[in-house]
Design a protein around this nucleic acid. Structure first.
Length: 493
RNA sequence: GCCCCCAUCGUCUAGCGGCCCAGGACGGAGCCCUCUCAAGGCUCAAACAGGGGUUCGAGUCCCCUUGGGGGCACCA
């Protein structure tokens, strides 16, 4: 592997929500840049005016920042090779297109979209591969130039070689050899003067001195075209890496709108903007995304820093990967457990306030260690710790009855617990637990039965963080109040 | 239909000719720990798609078949 600084880029089009695949794409590029001491560039491929969505651009930049994948050059921060929006680079493409025409490697085409659509349909009807018939390819250059000068609507096409083969080299897949007769003359510049992806990306990668193009395998079929564009100019090629695509969790087909909606129902999303709301943290998302398409022998829990050290472009996997959301849960929970208490508390707070709880920071700091290893997503803090912030709890009466006991017996246990606890100066867990344990012993009941009643009474739920530690945080007054209320409920049953 | 890519446990993957009767992770099963739920520890089940070659030796190289994926726009 070369250790020369790599200039890499993420070149998304602002036409929809930022996808998980874009995030992973960004990550791999970022990793290579940071590892080699190079630059990671954000370039917006916004040449499809019709499909460009307002806000999409911002969403991409926000998504990258949230993930911690900071770019060194980009539309909002500038850089030495700007502008970084393709719509602002019109003249650059036009200049290069002109060069190609002068070299005889490209030509203006005056065929209408209607005519093209018609020949495509005819070809399809004949079960042929749809492709441009080359009608304008052999127009007299002088004549063509006159029509262009006269303002006739046209596009610019690449004069693709018609014989022989094109050999394109991918770092992961080796040489990809395609017969040139399988290609038609691709459009470089659209009639609105903006480039197609193929031309825009090649020109910009050259202009921006990109050394490695790491992109998804969806570009593999147009890869030879891209190489031919570069060769028409006589430009050097970057190192090409086409990594794997994401498949639906079922493994059948790529993620669709429908599959995305399906995932959301289960509390998952393939859109970066949803991740925070769903309680995922960047560390978890990144670790998860990194490992779909990149395998490490062992120790697969990694921070960004560790990934930078361990990343290796040539170890990316070429085969498609089915998205596995259960694994997202796993990595998210694992990285939550890795966070410092203060850090986790700060990240949890918005989820409490979002629910309308007035959060006491000091109290939150005490709660965090109790719930940390129980969280899969940040929003899990609500079911686990919401009761700390509520004035009162309303337990399900049935839950107050311990297994193997009836309501009367359970009430008796609750009354004894009340006596014992109210006799303590405070409910520090070291102070409250021993006498309660002693009571369990003498009563012949199980800890499960006794503590279960107490738990439901004090927290209002059957599942909670450790009981005595929780009561300590709630405080003697409030805990006893809740217990008293539970006794009343039991006595009425 | 045509072109291209891919192929190891259910899933993500390690493996780059002998170290592999195939390792890790998620998920699953069981046990331990335990006041609930988790976390944690231990154990188990689970794969080289099929067929031909090459080689002393193939999961690893080549070919075919099959299966999966992607592309075939004045979209990216």
């Amino acid at each position: 592997m070369t250790i020369t600084p790599a200039r890499v880029r993420l070149a998304p089009s602002p036409t929809g929500h930022m996808h998980l695949a874009t995030a992973r794409n960004a990550l791999y590029n970022f990793l290579l840049a940071r590892q080699t001491g190079g630059q990671f560039i954000l370039r917006l491929e916004d040449t499809d005016i019709k499909r460009t969505l307002p806000g999409a651009e911002q969403e991409i930049m926000d998504g990258l920042r949230w993930l911690g994948l900071d770019y060194d050059e980009g539309p909002d921060i500038g850089g030495p090779y700007g502008p970084y929006r393709q719509t602002e680079r019109r003249e650059i493409y036009q200049h290069h297109a002109k060069t190609l025409i002068e070299k005889g490697a490209a030509y203006p085409c005056f065929c209408s979209a209607e005519r093209l659509e018609q020949i495509r349909q005819e070809q399809r009807a004949r079960k042929e591969t749809p492709r441009y018939d080359g009608a304008c390819r052999n127009l007299d250059p002088g004549e063509a130039a006159r029509r262009v000068a006269a303002g006739e609507k046209h596009v610019i096409r690449l004069k693709m070689p018609q014989d022989g083969t094109t050999v394109a080299h991918d770092l992961l897949r080796g040489d990809i050899v395609v017969e040139n007769k399988n290609f038609d003359d691709a459009i470089l510049l659209k009639s609105d003067g903006l480039p197609t992806y193929h031309f825009g990306a090649m020109v910009d990668d050259y202009e921006m001195k990109i050394t490695h193009v790491l992109r998804g395998a969806e570009w593999l079929s147009t890869f030879p075209l891209h190489v031919n564009i570069l060769r028409a100019f006589g430009w050097d090629e970057p190192v090409w890496v086409h990594f794997s695509l994401f498949l639906k969790p079922s493994g059948k087909g790529k993620m669709s709108k429908r599959a995305a909606a399906e995932a959301l129902k289960d509390g998952y999303s393939i859109f970066v903007k949803d991740m925070h709301d769903l309680g995922f943290i960047p560390e978890g998302v990144l670790n998860w995304a990194a490992l779909m398409g990149w395998g490490v022998p062992e120790d697969d829990v990694m921070t960004l820093e560790q990934m930078i050290k361990r990343f290796s472009v040539d170890r990316l996997t070429p085969s498609p990967a089915a998205i596995n959301f259960q694994k997202l849960d796993h990595f998210n929970g694992t990285h939550i457990r890795l966070l410092q208490t203060e850090d986790l508390a700060a990240r949890l707070k918005p989820y409490f306030t979002r629910e309308g709880f007035a959060v006491n920071d000091e109290m939150l700091l005490k709660i965090v260690p109790l719930i940390r290893e129980r969280l899969v997503t940040l929003d899990d803090c609500l079911p686990f710790a919401g009761f700390f912030f509520r004035e009162t709890v309303s337990p399900n009466p049935e839950d107050l009855i311990a297994k193997g006991l009836d309501a009367r017996q359970s009430a008796e246990v609750a009354r004894r617990a009340y006596q014992i606890l109210s006799a303590q100066p405070d409910l520090g867990h070291a102070r409250a637990e021993p006498p309660m344990r002693a009571y369990v012993e003498e009563s012949g009941l199980t800890a499960n039965q006794v503590f279960g009643i107490l738990r439901v009474a004090v927290t209002g739920q059957k599942v909670s963080p450790p009981l005595f530690e929780s009561m300590e945080i709630i405080g003697k007054e409030k805990a006893l109040e809740r217990l008293k209320r539970a006794i009343e409920i039991l006595e009425k049953m």
